[in-house]
């Protein structure tokens, strides 16, 4: 069954081509990447890549096995997105709220969001949550005038890790 699948790949930092190879594997198989997040891996000198792709379970399992064959990859795992929790961080630059400051703060509170930077030209707010939640938050902020948005890509964990051999 096709659906959103999370792929998690940990690779050696000193092999910069590993990222290209991993993404190339998906490109070749015509699997589109819906989210990509890159950060430090669990051990020193490692990087963790998390991808959300649209495909079926079998294909995701096979892709994880193909990732394991890439030189420099330490581990590659996958789970169906609906078996896990996922969060994305969004930063949004808004026009200065002026007299609507109170209204903005109320909206931010509703979305457990925060105002993290302020200048004469703009304010920056941060918002985190699952995809639908941050989408809704962004829509709520539209009336304040969104200038620019940066999104982190999704970090995801399986709710209960399946026992692995």
């Amino acid at each position: 069954m096709s659906g959103a699948q999370v792929l998690s790949v940990v690779y050696d930092d000193d092999r910069p081509f590993t990222l290209t190879r991993a993404v190339g594997l998906l490109r070749r198989r015509n699997v589109s990447i819906r989210s990509l997040a890159l950060g430090p891996g669990p051990a020193d000198g490692s990087t963790q890549l998390q991808l959300v792709v649209q495909t079926d379970r079998d294909d995701a399992e096979r892709i994880a096995m193909l990732f394991q064959k890439v030189v420099g990859v330490q581990a590659a795992t996958t789970f169906a997105a609906d078996r896990g929790v996922a969060r994305e961080l969004v930063l949004a630059r808004l026009r200065p709220p002026g007299e609507r400051l109170g209204e903005l703060l109320d909206t931010l509170q509703l979305y457990r969001a925060a105002l993290i930077d302020e200048s004469a030209e703009a304010v920056i707010v941060e918002l985190a949550g699952e995809e639908a939640f941050v989408g809704s938050g962004l829509r709520a902020l539209e009336s304040f005038g969104i200038i620019e948005v940066a999104r982190s890509g999704r970090a995801a964990l399986e709710r209960q890790r399946e026992a692995t051999a």
Binding site: D12, Q68, K69, V70, V71, G72, V73, Q74, A165
Partner: peptide, 9 residues
């Protein structure tokens, strides 16, 4: 280990 060689299950 470094080259990602892995035996199957």
């Amino acid at each position: 280990a470094a080259s990602g060689t892995r035996a199957g299950a």
